[in-house]
Simulated scan of single mutants.
Amino acid sequence: MTKKNHDADVAFIQALAELLRENDLTELQVKRDYGADDSLNVRVSRHIQQQAAVQVAAPAPAPAAAPAAAPAAPAASSPDDPADHPGAVTSPMVGTVYMQAEPGADPFISVGASVSEGDTLLIVEAMKTMNHIPAPRSGTIKRIVVEDGAAVEFGTPLVILE
Protein backbone atom coordinates (compact mmCIF):
# COMPACT_ATOMS: atom_id res chain seq x y z
CA MET A 1 0.00 0.00 0.00
CA THR A 2 1.35 3.38 -0.90
CA LYS A 3 1.65 6.36 1.43
CA LYS A 4 -1.04 8.10 -0.62
CA ASN A 5 -3.52 5.24 -0.07
CA HIS A 6 -2.62 5.13 3.63
CA ASP A 7 -3.33 8.85 4.11
CA ALA A 8 -6.60 8.54 2.17
CA ASP A 9 -7.62 5.52 4.26
CA VAL A 10 -6.93 7.36 7.53
CA ALA A 11 -9.03 10.31 6.33
CA PHE A 12 -11.77 7.88 5.25
CA ILE A 13 -11.81 6.18 8.68
CA GLN A 14 -11.91 9.54 10.45
CA ALA A 15 -14.87 10.55 8.26
CA LEU A 16 -16.65 7.31 9.17
CA ALA A 17 -16.09 7.99 12.89
CA GLU A 18 -17.50 11.48 12.46
CA LEU A 19 -20.52 10.07 10.59
CA LEU A 20 -21.04 7.57 13.41
CA ARG A 21 -21.07 10.33 16.03
CA GLU A 22 -23.16 12.84 14.06
CA ASN A 23 -25.91 10.31 13.32
CA ASP A 24 -25.83 8.71 16.79
CA LEU A 25 -25.00 5.28 15.35
CA THR A 26 -23.39 2.47 17.32
CA GLU A 27 -21.69 0.66 14.44
CA LEU A 28 -20.72 1.17 10.82
CA GLN A 29 -19.00 -1.29 8.48
CA VAL A 30 -17.67 -0.50 5.01
CA LYS A 31 -15.59 -2.39 2.44
CA ARG A 32 -13.62 -0.40 -0.11
CA ASP A 33 -12.24 -2.20 -3.17
CA TYR A 34 -9.20 -0.70 -4.86
CA GLY A 35 -8.54 -3.48 -7.29
CA ALA A 36 -8.53 -7.26 -7.72
CA ASP A 37 -6.20 -7.96 -4.78
CA ASP A 38 -6.42 -4.69 -2.86
CA SER A 39 -9.24 -3.68 -0.53
CA LEU A 40 -9.93 -2.02 2.80
CA ASN A 41 -12.48 -3.49 5.20
CA VAL A 42 -13.35 -1.09 8.07
CA ARG A 43 -15.65 -1.56 11.04
CA VAL A 44 -16.12 1.43 13.36
CA SER A 45 -18.17 1.00 16.52
CA ARG A 46 -18.73 2.69 19.83
CA HIS A 47 -20.23 1.70 23.15
CA ILE A 48 -23.15 3.82 24.30
CA GLN A 49 -24.08 3.89 27.98
CA GLN A 50 -27.55 2.37 28.06
CA GLN A 51 -30.07 4.09 30.30
CA ALA A 52 -32.51 2.10 32.37
CA ALA A 53 -35.90 1.45 30.78
CA VAL A 54 -38.64 3.79 31.91
CA GLN A 55 -41.40 1.90 33.62
CA VAL A 56 -44.99 3.02 33.94
CA ALA A 57 -46.64 1.50 36.98
CA ALA A 58 -49.17 2.63 39.56
CA PRO A 59 -47.42 3.70 42.75
CA ALA A 60 -48.04 1.56 45.82
CA PRO A 61 -50.31 3.22 48.38
CA ALA A 62 -48.31 4.82 51.19
CA PRO A 63 -48.99 3.69 54.76
CA ALA A 64 -50.97 6.22 56.82
CA ALA A 65 -48.17 6.69 59.38
CA ALA A 66 -45.35 7.11 56.83
CA PRO A 67 -42.84 9.94 57.35
CA ALA A 68 -43.62 12.98 55.24
CA ALA A 69 -40.28 13.63 53.51
CA ALA A 70 -38.32 10.40 53.27
CA PRO A 71 -35.64 10.60 50.55
CA ALA A 72 -36.13 8.16 47.67
CA ALA A 73 -33.53 5.46 47.08
CA PRO A 74 -31.62 5.66 43.77
CA ALA A 75 -33.22 3.62 40.99
CA ALA A 76 -29.97 1.76 40.23
CA SER A 77 -29.91 0.10 43.64
CA SER A 78 -33.61 -0.74 43.60
CA PRO A 79 -34.41 -4.37 44.34
CA ASP A 80 -37.19 -4.08 41.75
CA ASP A 81 -34.73 -3.58 38.88
CA PRO A 82 -36.01 -5.98 36.17
CA ALA A 83 -32.52 -6.48 34.74
CA ASP A 84 -31.43 -8.09 38.04
CA HIS A 85 -34.49 -10.33 38.37
CA PRO A 86 -33.72 -14.05 37.86
CA GLY A 87 -36.93 -14.51 35.86
CA ALA A 88 -36.21 -11.70 33.41
CA VAL A 89 -36.58 -12.55 29.73
CA THR A 90 -34.30 -10.20 27.80
CA SER A 91 -34.25 -9.05 24.20
CA PRO A 92 -31.91 -11.08 22.00
CA MET A 93 -31.55 -8.18 19.55
CA VAL A 94 -32.03 -4.48 18.87
CA GLY A 95 -35.46 -3.67 17.51
CA THR A 96 -39.05 -2.58 18.14
CA VAL A 97 -41.38 -4.51 20.44
CA TYR A 98 -44.87 -5.53 19.38
CA MET A 99 -47.21 -7.15 21.91
CA GLN A 100 -49.60 -8.62 19.32
CA ALA A 101 -49.35 -10.28 15.91
CA GLU A 102 -51.06 -7.38 14.12
CA PRO A 103 -52.69 -4.08 15.07
CA GLY A 104 -56.03 -4.64 16.76
CA ALA A 105 -55.32 -8.30 17.61
CA ASP A 106 -55.23 -9.63 21.18
CA PRO A 107 -51.82 -9.37 22.88
CA PHE A 108 -49.74 -12.54 23.13
CA ILE A 109 -49.46 -12.23 26.93
CA SER A 110 -50.88 -10.37 29.90
CA VAL A 111 -49.82 -10.08 33.53
CA GLY A 112 -50.90 -13.21 35.40
CA ALA A 113 -51.17 -15.35 32.27
CA SER A 114 -49.61 -18.82 32.26
CA VAL A 115 -47.27 -19.65 29.39
CA SER A 116 -45.63 -22.86 28.28
CA GLU A 117 -42.05 -23.20 27.10
CA GLY A 118 -41.85 -22.04 23.48
CA ASP A 119 -45.02 -19.91 23.54
CA THR A 120 -44.61 -16.52 21.85
CA LEU A 121 -44.27 -13.77 24.44
CA LEU A 122 -43.98 -10.88 21.99
CA ILE A 123 -42.36 -9.87 18.71
CA VAL A 124 -39.19 -7.86 18.20
CA GLU A 125 -38.97 -6.34 14.73
CA ALA A 126 -35.41 -5.99 13.51
CA MET A 127 -34.58 -4.87 9.97
CA LYS A 128 -38.16 -5.48 8.74
CA THR A 129 -38.12 -9.05 10.13
CA MET A 130 -40.66 -10.05 12.77
CA ASN A 131 -38.85 -12.19 15.35
CA HIS A 132 -41.11 -14.12 17.72
CA ILE A 133 -39.60 -14.21 21.21
CA PRO A 134 -40.42 -17.58 22.82
CA ALA A 135 -40.85 -18.30 26.52
CA PRO A 136 -37.60 -19.96 27.69
CA ARG A 137 -39.58 -22.04 30.22
CA SER A 138 -43.11 -22.54 31.48
CA GLY A 139 -44.39 -20.13 34.11
CA THR A 140 -46.57 -17.14 34.91
CA ILE A 141 -46.10 -13.62 33.56
CA LYS A 142 -45.46 -11.48 36.66
CA ARG A 143 -44.60 -8.24 34.90
CA ILE A 144 -44.39 -6.79 31.40
CA VAL A 145 -41.48 -4.35 31.43
CA VAL A 146 -41.75 -2.87 27.90
CA GLU A 147 -44.57 -1.14 26.10
CA ASP A 148 -45.96 -1.94 22.67
CA GLY A 149 -43.96 -0.07 20.01
CA ALA A 150 -40.99 0.59 22.32
CA ALA A 151 -37.44 0.44 20.98
CA VAL A 152 -35.20 -2.08 22.78
CA GLU A 153 -31.49 -2.83 22.85
CA PHE A 154 -29.80 -6.20 23.14
CA GLY A 155 -30.25 -7.45 26.73
CA THR A 156 -33.14 -5.12 27.60
CA PRO A 157 -35.55 -6.87 30.02
CA LEU A 158 -38.87 -7.56 28.29
CA VAL A 159 -40.95 -9.53 30.79
CA ILE A 160 -40.59 -11.18 34.19
CA LEU A 161 -41.50 -14.87 34.07
CA GLU A 162 -41.80 -16.91 37.26
Rank of each mutant, 00 (worst) to 15 (best):
Ala83Thr: 14
Ala83Pro: 06
Asp84Gln: 13
His85Lys: 14
His85Trp: 09
Pro86Val: 04
Pro86Lys: 09
Pro86Asn: 10
Pro86His: 11
Pro86Cys: 06
Pro86Gly: 10
Gly87Cys: 04
Gly87Leu: 02
Ala88Lys: 09
Ala88Tyr: 07
Ala88Pro: 05
Ala88Asp: 13
Ala88Gln: 12
Ala88Cys: 07
Val89Thr: 10
Val89Asp: 08
Thr90Gly: 05
Thr90Cys: 13
Ser91Asp: 02
Ser91Ala: 11
Pro92Glu: 07
Pro92Lys: 01
Met93Asp: 02
Met93Cys: 01
Val94Lys: 12
Val94Asp: 11
Gly95Lys: 08
Gly95Leu: 04
Thr96Ala: 03
Thr96Phe: 11
Thr96Pro: 08
Val97Ser: 02
Val97His: 00
Val97Thr: 00
Val97Trp: 00
Tyr98Pro: 04
Met99Cys: 02
Ala101Ser: 15
Ala101His: 12
Pro103Thr: 12
Pro103Tyr: 11
Pro103Arg: 09
Pro103His: 05
Gly104Arg: 08
Ala105Cys: 04
Ala105Asn: 06
Pro107Arg: 07
Pro107Thr: 12
Ile109Lys: 02
Ile109Asp: 06
Ser110Leu: 02
Ser110Asn: 13
Val111Trp: 01
Val111Cys: 05
Gly112Val: 08
Ser114Leu: 14
Ser114Glu: 15
Val115Thr: 02
Gly118Arg: 12
Asp119His: 10
Asp119Leu: 07
Thr120Ser: 13
Thr120Phe: 04
Leu122Arg: 07
Ile123Lys: 03
Ile123Thr: 07
Ile123Pro: 09
Ile123Ala: 01
Val124His: 01
Val124Glu: 04
Glu125Cys: 00
Glu125Thr: 02
Ala126His: 03
Ala126Asn: 03
Ala126Arg: 01
Ala126Leu: 11
Met127Asp: 08
Met127Phe: 07
Lys128Trp: 05
Lys128Met: 04
Lys128Pro: 12
Thr129Val: 15
Thr129Cys: 02
Thr129Arg: 03
Thr129His: 03
Thr129Lys: 13
Thr129Ile: 15
Met130Tyr: 05
Asn131Asp: 06
His132Glu: 15
Ile133Asp: 03
Pro134Met: 07
Pro134Ser: 09
Pro136Ala: 02
Arg137Pro: 00
Arg137Ile: 00
Arg137Glu: 14
Arg137Val: 00
Arg137Ser: 10
Arg137Lys: 15
Ser138Thr: 14
Thr140Ser: 12
Thr140Asn: 13
Thr140Asp: 11
Thr140Lys: 15
